[in-house]
Design a protein around this nucleic acid. Sequence first.
DNA 1: ATATTTAATGCAACTTTGTTGCATTAGTTA
DNA 2: TAACTAATGCAACAAAGTTGCATTAAATAT
Lengths: 141, 141
Amino acid sequence: MILFFTTFKLSYICVMGILRKTKSVKILLDEFEKQSTAISAITLIERFHLNMNKTTIYRILDKLEDDGFLHSFLGKNGHKWYAQCSGCSSAEHHDIHPHFQCSDCGKVECLSTDVLIPTIPNCKVDVSQILIQGTCEECFS
Amino acid sequence: MILFFTTFKLSYICVMGILRKTKSVKILLDEFEKQSTAISAITLIERFHLNMNKTTIYRILDKLEDDGFLHSFLGKNGHKWYAQCSGCSSAEHHDIHPHFQCSDCGKVECLSTDVLIPTIPNCKVDVSQILIQGTCEECFS
DNA sequence: ATATTTAATGCAACTTTGTTGCATTAGTTA
DNA sequence: TAACTAATGCAACAAAGTTGCATTAAATAT
């Protein structure tokens, strides 16, 4: 959340998410600022196991999602991935877009393309997860 | 596989899948014949824990998928689900269709509707998983 | 600047889904 | 009926993610 890069009283803005700007929160926010592609929870745990506990990582990711800074989805193995939201808030997540995962290197990208979800008779559709798998540009050439 | 309901020499047909018509295989085949909606591995383990070991269940499901009798996909929690294929073989799985999971009762249905998958520049697309979540007909009313 | 409050953290133990190795059992073929 | 070996059960394991609780450290109040 942009909050941390300006200087607000956090408690006014975040009701259920992150309240304190701790070292761990800063490290993770920096990471998502730096890297535009999605990152899996497992990758973050490996990458920062010297800096913080895996429990802490899971908890911060959870809160950042509540805050509308990150959105989560499941990769090809059912493992959790996170990426920055664009224009979401704690009130509403409107980041329903497909994700592309390379079967070769495992990298995941958010796709801006819209996919038309079929309507289902008598059912109320809430969310849809679309994971497209294949070979990415780098692994293909 | 229809093989088991007629009388063939199995070894001619199944190369890497199921070779013997055991009690466990019969139970699971019956279950998928009986129920047209998808079934999660966990559900089968609960349902048949008196009849067979969970290892056996996972192994049989795996082989039935190899044989083209079942296809698998991940539900909303990343858990494995299986449903009957229509027209697939061990040589080729062409059952790429969306699935609908009810957030209320957890039930999963295969949808016959086609979804247009976006092309991604310079990438080769292989498979795509589409999981639509919402409230099903029964839970809605 | 220091004390107080309590959100956030680390740790260990746990839960759940799914997998592996190996001895034993039971379909299938000879 | 015997022989072969695929399939099974069991126990132990692996990996992702969660929970409870004592401790630490941000933010606020003094």
